[in-house]
Each structure stands twice: as structure tokens, then as C-alpha cells.
């Protein structure tokens, strides 16, 4: 059987008297793109921290195979390094200067920031910085990409643009991806599988699959339907209205 690169089994975790997880089990397949949505404070980020081995569960087992890199909620580019230097952090394992340079140039071209190679993060827009964050995490030899609300600080249009960008980058750099987000459209537009978590202690309310190749249009009927299903699952829309909804709106 193909071992899942990311796997938590019967995990329980409490912070003081607050139980975050009780006997939670999640398994993520190689190359899969999984989105995790749920009410705020339900432990979505904590789940990522378990996957990245940053925190250990109180009980249960966490398996994490391969090199995982995370894109954080807050700006995490080193502000004292240029765009190139930041991305090169992902290439530290390559000792050959020429090879490093080649991969860096390719990446800068892919994210369309060739002319900003020697700029510092504070000289870029929020969307550009997030592209550099993705580039740093994807370049080199990582296997797993953990995304913690990576686009939450961006404006709506930039967010949509970056979703397409991420889909394009993953074409070139296939990875196992876990995306934690409160943006339900984002989940529906990007993920192969969406895990909806309940309030604390978080359990899996439901799992939805989206069988549609990326990049997907935001207004594609399957995406719209998935958005509705997630909202219904979170109790924010009525299940019954689903049948009446016209996908052509």
C-alpha cells in the first residue's frame, strides 16, 4: 500500500484545559491537495503544526514523511534579504552555484518577478510577497507544502489571482498540499478534497471531493456547488436550497 506522507491517527491534544482534538484521524495521500476549513479557533493551524512536527500530540500518532515546508499566516520572508536571497533559502541543499542560479532564475520567471530579484520584501506589494513565499517553499527538494491561510491578508482580487498562480506553480512543482483556510471559495477552487472540521474539540464533520482539474474557474458550477455544500456543512446555508440553486447565475 502506498504510504500516506501525512497521517495523524487517534490524536488527542489539549492546551491546558482546552481540548483541541479528541481521537482525530486524518490521512493525506501523496500528491493530494487537501483543504481544511472550519470555524475560527477550531484547531486548523494546530493540525498543520502537528503535520510539520512543530508540536507533539498528547496521545496518538503523527506520521510525516518527507520534507515539509510551511507558508505562514504572517509575513515570514526575511526582510533583510532580497527576493533572490529569500527564495534561495529553499535551495540550501544544492552546493553547485550554477545549478542554484539556474533553478532560481527559472523560479523567478515562473512567478514573474525577474525584474524584482534584487528588491527587498518591503519594496513589494502584498501579492508579490506572497508569490515569493510560495516560491521559497516550493523550490528545491520539498515534498509537502503546508499552507496556513496564505492569502488571508490580501485583497479579494489579488487572492483570486494568487489561487491561479498557486495552481500554475503546482503544475511545475507537484507537491502534497494541505491548505488551512477560512476562505471557502479558496478551498473549493483549489482542493481535491475538503475536510470540514467542527468546533472544539475538532472532529471531521464531512469530507467533500472535487473532481475537476485545476485551474478551476471560481464560477464553475462544481465550484459553486462545493461552496454551497461547505456552507451548509458549517450551518451557514440551508441544505434544501441546494436543489433550487441555478448554477448559471
Amino acid at each position: 500500500m502506498n504510504a500516506s506522507p501525512l497521517h495523524v491517527e487517534n490524536v488527542s491534544l489539549s492546551f491546558g484545559s482546552v481540548a483541541v482534538f479528541q481521537n482525530l484521524s486524518v490521512s493525506i495521500e501523496r500528491g493530494e491537495f487537501v483543504a481544511v476549513v472550519g470555524p475560527s479557533g477550531c484547531g486548523k493551524t494546530t493540525l498543520l503544526n502537528l503535520f510539520s512536527q512543530f508540536i507533539k500530540p498528547s496521545t496518538g500518532r503523527v506520521v510525516s514523511v518527507g520534507r515539509a515546508r510551511m507558508v505562514y499566516q504572517q509575513d515570514s520572508l526575511f526582510p533583510w534579504q532580497t527576493v533572490s536571497e529569500n527564495i534561495e533559502l529553499g535551495l540550501r541543499h544544492i552546493s553547485d552555484d550554477k545549478e542554484r542560479k539556474r533553478q532560481l532564475t527559472d523560479m523567478l520567471r515562473l512567478i514573474n518577478l525577474e525584474s524584482f530579484a534584487n528588491h527587498y520584501p518591503h519594496q513589494l506589494s502584498g501579492g508579490m510577497r506572497q508569490r515569493v513565499e510560495l516560491a521559497r517553499a516550493l523550490i528545491g527538494n520539498s515534498d509537502v507544502l503546508l499552507l496556513d491561510e496564505p492569502f488571508s491578508s490580501l485583497d479579494y482580487l489579488t487572492r483570486i489571482r494568487l489561487r491561479n498562480e498557486l495552481a500554475r506553480m503546482l503544475d511545475q512543482f507537484p507537491r502534497t498540499v494541505v491548505l488551512v483556510t477560512h476562505d471557502i471559495e479558496e478551498a473549493a477552487q483549489l482542493a481535491d478534497r475538503i475536510i470540514v472540521l467542527s468546533d472544539r474539540p475538532a472532529r471531521i464533520c464531512s469530507e467533500l471531493r472535487v473532481e475537476l482539474p485545476r485551474p478551476r474557474e471560481l464560477t464553475h458550477p462544481a465550484v459553486v456547488t462545493t461552496v454551497h455544500e461547505i456552507l451548509a456543512e458549517l450551518g451557514l446555508e440551508q441544505e434544501s436550497r441546494h436543489a433550487m440553486m441555478s448554477p448559471a447565475v
Partner: peptide, 29 residues
């Protein structure tokens, strides 16, 4: 210094000396 910089340093395999010279010092400069 935002703690996220130290997490990034860990993600990209920085040693202790590198954390000092490549994270802490430039961050406080």
C-alpha cells in the same frame, strides 16, 4: 523579533550559529 523568523530558520535547516548571524543579528540591526 517575530517568532515566525525562527520557525522559518528551522524549516530551512539553520544551525545555531546561522540563526545568530543570519536571523537574530540582521533582525535587530
Amino acid at each position: 523579533i517575530p517568532s515566525v523568523y525562527f520557525r522559518v530558520a528551522g524549516d530551512y535547516g539553520f544551525g545555531n550559529a546561522e540563526i545568530l548571524t543570519r536571523v537574530t543579528l540582521p533582525a535587530i540591526a
